[in-house]
Amino acid sequence: MSTEIQSWLLSIEPFEGESLSHFLGRFRRQNHLSPSALGDLAGVGAVIARWERFHFNPFPSDAELAAVAEVVGVTLDRLRQMLAPEGVKMKCEPIRLCAACYQEEPYHRLEWQYQSTGGCDRHQLRLLSKCRNCQAKFPIPALWEDGCCDRCRLHFGEMTKWQKSY
């Protein structure tokens, strides 16, 4: 990537435990980029759209991650932290969240998509996989611009009252 293009990009800091999907969506919105435009800038093609949907088969190569890390302005190691550790299985669907966590800090946590995660250890609440107001499934975290249900506009943080004990 040329330094001329890189100087125009606004950087953002990843949150602790943030999923790659959510981070890439925030970065793209900040810089008015589509998934394909970000993929083109990094020279990795269409993988960005796949990664935003938690489709990591094939798993991102070091070369792909390094190219994306350069464009988004984070280290390769920091980008790797936004991926599931080796041996941890991910759930691509449904997208899940802890409304109580989201109310405290509005971002998607990677651990919510682990197959082994049944609930939030911090709040002792089960994860939600759809809006409890209108039953709409949650979109991929890359699209969580307003932090609310796409259908009824209920804020994710307000869904805490529907979470059951874990």
Rank of each mutant, 00 (worst) to 15 (best):
N31K: 01
R28I: 08
G17E: 00
N31T: 01
R28C: 07
E13S: 14
H22P: 07
P35C: 05
N31W: 02
G25Q: 08
F23H: 10
A37D: 11
L24E: 09
R28F: 03
E16D: 05
A42C: 03
L41R: 00
V44A: 10
S36W: 10
F27A: 04
G39P: 01
G17Q: 02
F27S: 08
G25A: 06
F27D: 03
E13T: 12
S36C: 09
R29V: 09
G17P: 02
E16Q: 05
F27L: 10
S19L: 14
G43L: 14
F15G: 04
G25H: 01
S36V: 09
D40G: 14
H22M: 05
S34N: 14
F23E: 03
P14K: 11
S34Y: 15
H22N: 13
R28V: 09
A37T: 06
A42F: 06
R28D: 08
L41D: 01
S36N: 13
L24I: 14
F23P: 05
G25R: 03
G43R: 15
L20C: 13
F23C: 09
F27Y: 13
E13H: 06
S21M: 12
G17W: 04
F15T: 03
P14Q: 09
A37F: 06
L41E: 02
L24C: 08
D40A: 05
S34W: 14
P14F: 08
G17N: 03
S19P: 07
S21R: 13
F15C: 12
H22Q: 12
P14H: 08
L20N: 05
P14G: 11
L20K: 02
E16N: 03
E16Y: 02
H32D: 15
H22F: 12
E13N: 06
